[in-house]
Design a protein around this nucleic acid. Sequence first.
DNA 1: ACACGCCGATTGTCCGACAAGTAGACGCAA
DNA 2: TTGCGTCTACTTGTCGGACAATCGGCGTGT
Lengths: 232, 232
Amino acid sequence: MARGIVVTSLVDALVEDLREKVVSGELAPGTPLTELEVSTRYDVARASARAAIERLTGEKVLVRANHKTARVITLGPEDVRDIYRTRTYLESEVLRRLALTRQVPAAACEANAEIAALWAEGSYAIVDPDMRFHTSLIDSLASTRTSAMYHSLAFEVKLCMAQLQGRQRLSPEIIVAEHARILALIEAGDGEGAAAMLDEHLARARELLAASLGGEAGPEASVPSSALPPTP
Amino acid sequence: MARGIVVTSLVDALVEDLREKVVSGELAPGTPLTELEVSTRYDVARASARAAIERLTGEKVLVRANHKTARVITLGPEDVRDIYRTRTYLESEVLRRLALTRQVPAAACEANAEIAALWAEGSYAIVDPDMRFHTSLIDSLASTRTSAMYHSLAFEVKLCMAQLQGRQRLSPEIIVAEHARILALIEAGDGEGAAAMLDEHLARARELLAASLGGEAGPEASVPSSALPPTP
DNA sequence: ACACGCCGATTGTCCGACAAGTAGACGCAA
DNA sequence: TTGCGTCTACTTGTCGGACAATCGGCGTGT
């Protein structure tokens, strides 16, 4: 089981490629995506391009109003805060449940060790194992829907990161220490403590993200995602 | 603001109508929905029918495998448990946060009063205000994503209910009492207690639903949604 | 300066067509 | 009878072209 291959339809492939281009930053937030553009760039029929765009708007990777061209989503500080709030709700409750049975998922330990290792060798490509730490905690509950929801939130976090092209700086050593602390609290059965710790842990990341996303203007197109109409 | 009218495109209307037909039970679980059927029944082009079906599969109202015709989703006991578990995670954490500030949303009180009123006059159309009680608690946090996630779960609960055509029976008086208890605990600042109470409250509903969904076979087509291959 | 109307670009919807895949019916052989 | 291969009808996936509706901008006339 779990053979890596999957049959992908054409629009599946389109969706995947476009989504990847968005999270990688190749398609900056606010970039308009015309059906014709997509269809010609990939050499597919407009119907297919259209389907892909529609699916991505369903996933909230793109946004589009009636009769207007789809654009890559732009996430502002308010969005970051909302994402992290929701994330905190879900994850802290999960920590409580894990603490009840004192289960410390092995995958979480490994992910944290990986962060430490990367830090030791001077690399800053931390975001991936960091995500893995958190998702492995959630996934250890084996609830399809809980996992799906958390993953969708994690994806939005990735989108945020894509917007500020790796400018944010949070020190790996603090992260590793806090992760370890959380795992210890779970093992000790202190759900309340673990939840509190997580709250703090995520709050720091959240404010850092929100600040760098809203404080300084990006290289171009300081389009605020919020409903604030830019005074013309 | 909040003028009721919304501009709906054709496929939007299709999606809405089909979704409504599914939650109302008019389209039973497992019913196949051919693109051609939909396009002819509504007298629209196949492309439009196709788009509607695709969006509904994205919403998990329909399911479809590669090259096979879409079917109305069938939810089994395992799904019910998963839905309620996720629901409990989200909602209990929300209760804790509400208890921190002792905020009791007025809408929740009203919804509960409405249940009581309906019960007093002998009606059993309780599920709607019951849903409103819970969603108003969530919505009082004003977190777009948290609300969206909870609403999607609530929708799945409605799907479950649609499957057993109003056969389930949970006594309104217990519901009202437990709701009131939860609100009281929030007002008292006892988040832990409120969460525990909710846990119990939802567990009862969950097991009732799961039992009536899995215990007896439906009128026809006892297709188990789970991966369990029916011993042939 | 302001209202108005036209125009290009883009979306929304339709039609018809064909390849490819699935599932069930059919028939043939052991 | 049972098992297996084949064939066929139905359905999906994708294409191309077509046209009305809509939006935003530009120029024009008053």
